[in-house]
Computed example of a mutant assay.
Amino acid sequence: MIKSMIREIKYLFAQKSLIHQFTKREISNRYKGSYLGIVWSFITPLMMLTIYTFVFSVIFQARWGTTGETNKVEFALLLFTGLFVFNVFSEVVSRAPSLILFNSNYVKKVVFPLEILPIVALGSALFQALISYIILLLAMLILTGTFYWTALLFPIIILPLLLISLGLAWFLASLGVYIRDVGQIVSIVLPALMFMSPIFYPRSSIPEEFQFVYSLNPMTYVVEDMRSAIIWGDLPHWHLLIMGIVIGGLFAVLGYIWFKKTRKGFADVL
């Protein structure tokens, strides 16, 4: 089993050039034909941040926590942190069911590694997340005049979510070939998951009887630790982070195994 896993990891690593090429093309095609091109990668998160902040902090008069002492600038930064973390997961999972369907021309090419398509989708989402991350750091410097070294822990803190996203992407990409309704189900589940995660509110505001439910949501720990590290300069909860990486790794392994087992029937269905 271990030898087989090592062999598969080496196989995927050997495709790094192809993964880089496809990811670059994916990012380029996203804004192909538009006048502003990649500039939209900066404009889009800024606009969404402005809209969400206006709606929640101005119209709904939302406040962070129970004290209500958070000003609009800090509220915007806290909200933006949660959103850009969730958007990585959302983009990968929402695209996963159609990855094979939209690339059906590669299915009958025996030598083409279909396994890289979810990795490419993750790479594209991560590129957008890095831009949002840079915007957040600049906003911290400009609006609050602070920068905490703990913000550099971003790659480690988000790793559990990346692994879970990749595992789900392999699973859903395969399942989407056989059950076309999967995409519709995912489009319903994702908004529900967003509001069931502490993105627009802190975990401390959740009633005690629902705390257990939120403790089962891996998004909770990633969002909370990311906020703590970037906005307040606190270290993440290392024991929960390590546990998250282990669970995320398990998700990735199981998703990959499922994909390898089921890909043999792709050509027959498509």
Rank of each mutant, 00 (worst) to 15 (best):
I188F: 15
I188R: 04
I188N: 04
V189I: 15
V189F: 08
V189G: 03
L190H: 04
L190M: 14
L190D: 04
P191E: 03
P191R: 03
P191V: 09
P191D: 03
P191A: 02
P191W: 05
A192R: 00
A192H: 02
A192N: 06
A192F: 15
L193M: 14
M194A: 10
M194F: 15
M194D: 02
M194C: 07
M194I: 11
F195C: 06
F195P: 05
F195W: 13
F195M: 11
M196P: 05
M196R: 01
M196Q: 02
S197C: 11
S197H: 10
S197V: 11
S197G: 13
P198T: 09
P198V: 09
P198S: 08
P198F: 10
I199A: 07
I199M: 08
I199V: 13
F200Q: 02
F200S: 01
F200M: 13
Y201M: 09
Y201A: 05
Y201N: 07
Y201H: 07
P202I: 13
P202R: 09
P202N: 07
P202C: 11
R203Q: 11
R203G: 13
R203S: 13
S204D: 14
S204W: 07
S204Y: 06
S204Q: 13
S204L: 08
S204N: 11
S204V: 13
S205T: 15
S205A: 14
S205P: 07
S205F: 10
S205H: 04
I206R: 03
I206Y: 07
P207Y: 11
P207A: 10
P207I: 12
E208T: 13
E208S: 12
E208K: 09
E208V: 10
E209T: 06
E209P: 00
E209A: 06
E209F: 07
E209N: 11
F210S: 00
F210R: 00
F210C: 00
F210L: 12
F210I: 00
F210G: 00
Q211R: 13
Q211I: 13
Q211A: 05
Q211K: 14
Q211L: 15
Q211Y: 08
F212L: 12
F212I: 11
F212W: 12
F212P: 00
F212S: 11
V213K: 00
Y214M: 07
Y214K: 01
Y214L: 07
Y214E: 03
S215R: 09
S215P: 03
L216K: 01
L216P: 01
L216E: 00
L216F: 13
L216H: 01
L216W: 10
N217G: 10
N217Q: 08
N217S: 09
N217I: 09
P218R: 07
P218L: 10
P218M: 10
M219S: 03
